[in-house]
């Protein structure tokens, strides 16, 4: 196992699709306490984004808070709290915060960021009227010119009309996901968040579709070349 070659830190986190990536010859790198697959064995050479690119970013630090005082607590902690339901705002050090409900927020750090992780430490097991929502979501990023076709085979939402920056709760290949349309390197992209127990299944389905459309599974290094060492 590769884990042995890249010994994990004390409380190592692990992607829910670790085994699937391992089977594709993942080159692992530890970033912020998590191992990312930065490159995969069969990835095409070069830096181009293929027709469709599927990337696992489940290593990103996340935090969910819910409760009557959640908005206030975040605001006090220096987070720009989204006013509208499903709206997303950037976190100060990269990443994003999305309003998942009237009293519920979801934070995900960028690859280099640490705000969610810091706030998570700060929250510990919870605070008054601010409850931790355990978020161990798998994060998949789908991009490339044919990403819309991948979505068309898996999801009944017309993304040509989707408003970038707003999350959508829907079903992808039968799995409930929060989905954030975004743009990466001028390409239409979709960020999928889902219960990690469904991640191996959904990943497998998406890989089949992405590859059938001429796309590839890629490491995080391709989409984020400035990944910290």
């Amino acid at each position: 196992m590769n884990v042995a070659m890249n010994p994990a830190p004390a409380a190592a986190r692990r992607s829910p699709i670790h085994d699937a990536l391992e089977a594709r010859g993942a080159e692992w790198r530890d970033v912020n306490g998590t191992t990312f697959a930065v490159r995969l064995r069969d990835e095409p050479a070069g830096d181009d984004i293929p027709a469709a690119a599927l990337c696992d970013l489940s290593g990103l630090n996340q935090l969910g808070v819910k409760g009557p005082d959640a908005a206030n607590w975040l605001s006090t902690a220096g987070v720009d709290v989204p006013a509208d339901l499903y709206e997303s705002r950037p976190l100060p050090s990269g990443g994003r915060v999305v309003r998942f409900g009237a009293h519920e927020f979801f934070l995900e750090d960028g690859i280099a960021g640490s705000k969610a992780s810091e706030l998570s430490e700060q929250l510990g097991f919870g605070a008054e009227q601010v409850y931790r929502v355990e978020h161990q979501d798998a994060t998949f990023l789908l991009t490339g010119p044919r990403s819309l076709d991948v979505m068309a085979q898996t999801c009944g939402i017309d993304f040509r009309e989707a408003n970038g920056g707003r999350a959508i709760f829907t079903r992808v290949a039968g799995v409930s996901c929060a989905l954030l349309p975004e743009t990466i390197a001028d390409q239409q992209a979709f960020r999928l968040w889902l219960d990690p127990s469904y991640a191996p299944y959904l990943w497998e389905e998406l890989v089949v579709i992405v590859e059938s459309l001429g796309g590839h599974v890629v490491g995080a290094g391709r989409l984020f070349p400035d990944l910290p060492a």
């Binding site: 692990r14 829910p16 670790h18 085994d19 469904y198 191996p200 299944y201 959904l202």
Partner: peptide, 14 residues
């Protein structure tokens, strides 16, 4: 179609 039958696995499945 592709017959989507979602399946859940615990983190220890592997």
């Amino acid at each position: 179609g592709r017959r989507f039958h979602p399946q859940r696995r615990t983190p220890l499945d592997g």
